[in-house]
Design a protein around this nucleic acid. Structure first.
Lengths: 94, 94
DNA sequence: GCATAGTGTAAATTATCGGATTACAGTTTC
DNA sequence: GAAACTGTAATCCGATAATTTACACTATGC
C-alpha cells in the first residue's frame, strides 16, 4: 500500500515538471495560493474537487490523486480506530 | 465506471446475506440506527471510518466500500464542476 | 537605498457535512 | 391496549476543507 501524501508527488514531480510557480498554478486550479501551499506542506488533503482539477491539468484523471489521499487517510484512521475495529466481529455471509 | 451507491450493495446483498436486522447491525458498527438507515436510503455517504468498520465486519477490507462511494461522488462532482473543469487546460509535462 | 512585487507561513473565519439526538407515525407482539 | 420495534424527518453539534487577512522575508527595479 502506497502511503505517500499527494502533496509529495505534487511538490517533487508535478510542479518541477510543469516548471510553473505556485501562485499561478493555484490560480489555474481555482484555489487560493495559501491552500495550495498547505497541500505541498502535506498539511491539507487533496479533496475530491481538487483531484478532478489536478486530473484535468495533468491529463491523468482524478483517480491517482484520490487513491494516494485515501490510502494515506486510511492508514492514519486504522490506527486511531484500532480498538473500535477490534470490537467488530467478522461475520460469514450465508 | 461503477456508479452504484454503496448503500445499494449494503441493502441488496449484505444485509440480506447476513440475515440481521438494521438496529443490531447499527449497534455492531457503532453507528446510530438512523444514520445506517440514511445510508441504506442512499442519502448519506459511506465515510472512511464506516468503510473500515464494514470491511472488518465483512472480512473484505475497506477498499470496496470506499471505491463505490468515491466513484459515486466523482460522477456527481464532475457534472457540478463541468464549467470550472473546462476552464483548466491540460498541460504537457516537460 | 528603498519601494514595489512576489513567496511562504500563520492565524481567524466561513461553509459544508458526517453523525448523533430527539421526536413522531406506523407495526408487531404480549 | 400497552410495550417494544421499525422507518423517517428535523434539529443540533463537531470536524474540516477552504478563503481571507495578516505578517516576515526575499528579490528586483528605479
Amino acid at each position: 500500500m502506497n502511503t505517500m501524501h499527494p502533496g509529495e508527488l505534487l511538490r517533487e514531480d508535478v510542479v518541477p515538471g510543469l516548471g510553473i510557480k505556485i501562485a499561478p498554478l493555484a490560480r489555474m486550479l481555482g484555489v487560493s495560493r495559501q491552500h495550495l501551499h498547505a497541500i505541498l506542506r502535506e498539511e491539507a488533503p487533496v479533496s475530491a474537487s481538487l483531484a478532478l482539477k489536478l486530473g484535468k491539468l495533468c491529463g491523468n484523471g482524478p483517480t491517482l490523486w484520490l487513491n494516494l489521499q485515501r490510502d494515506h487517510d486510511l492508514q492514519k484512521l486504522a490506527v486511531e480506530m484500532k480498538d473500535e475495529l477490534d470490537a467488530i466481529p467478522t461475520v460469514r455471509v450465508a
